[in-house]
Amino acid sequence: PGYVHVDVKYLPQMHDESNRRYLFVAIDRATRWVFVQPKANKTAASAQAFLKALHKACAIRISKVLTDNGKEFTDRLFTSKEREPSGNHEFDRLCQELGIEHRLTQPRTPRTNGMVERFNGRIADVLKTHRFNGREDLEQTLLRYVALYNQQLPQSALGSKTPMQAMKNWYQTHPHLFHKRLYDRPGCDT
Rank of each mutant, 00 (worst) to 15 (best):
G2P: 15
G2S: 13
H5M: 01
D7R: 08
Q13M: 04
Q13F: 00
E17F: 00
L23P: 13
F24C: 05
V25E: 07
A26M: 03
R32I: 04
F35V: 04
V36A: 10
Q37W: 12
N41L: 12
A47Q: 07
A47F: 03
A57W: 11
A59G: 13
I62W: 07
S63A: 06
K64Y: 15
K64Q: 10
L66P: 08
R76T: 14
F78G: 11
F78H: 10
T79W: 05
T79P: 03
S80Y: 01
K81M: 04
G87M: 11
H89I: 10
H89G: 12
E90K: 14
L94W: 01
E97F: 15
R108C: 03
T109F: 06
F119N: 09
N120W: 10
N120D: 13
D125G: 10
R131Q: 02
F132N: 00
Q140C: 01
T141P: 11
Y145D: 02
S156G: 05
L158K: 08
K161N: 14
T162K: 14
P163C: 11
K168C: 15
K168F: 15
W170M: 09
T173S: 09
H174Y: 13
P175V: 14
K180D: 07
L182Y: 09
D184M: 12
P186L: 05
D189G: 10
T190V: 15
